[in-house]
Amino acid sequence: MKLRTNSVSWREIDGETVILDLSSSTYLKTNAAGSTIMRLLSEERTTAELADGLVEEYGIPADQATADTETFVAMLRERNLLDTADS
């Protein structure tokens, strides 16, 4: 999976990420951990790779990172912010 690039723009500001989805005309934001995942999702990633990013950045247990990543990815998917050709 990776972030949809068509009609979606995002920018990191003070550790948070602001996302503009032109297709739905909405602004969204993520916190710091969300920004870590957003950064990784600029390229094709697996859930495991995203969870590893949280482990490396925050030193949290792998199972917590996996659960949190799956929850966050579900939020992104619900907002149609992912390219889901092969997730």
């Binding site: 503009l20 909405t26 969300g34």
Partner: peptide, 15 residues
């Protein structure tokens, strides 16, 4: 940095 689980929030519409 204290860890907070990743969250996605809607800020509002462009309009």
């Amino acid at each position: 940095m204290a860890y907070q689980p990743p969250v996605l929030e809607e800020v509002g519409s462009v309009r």
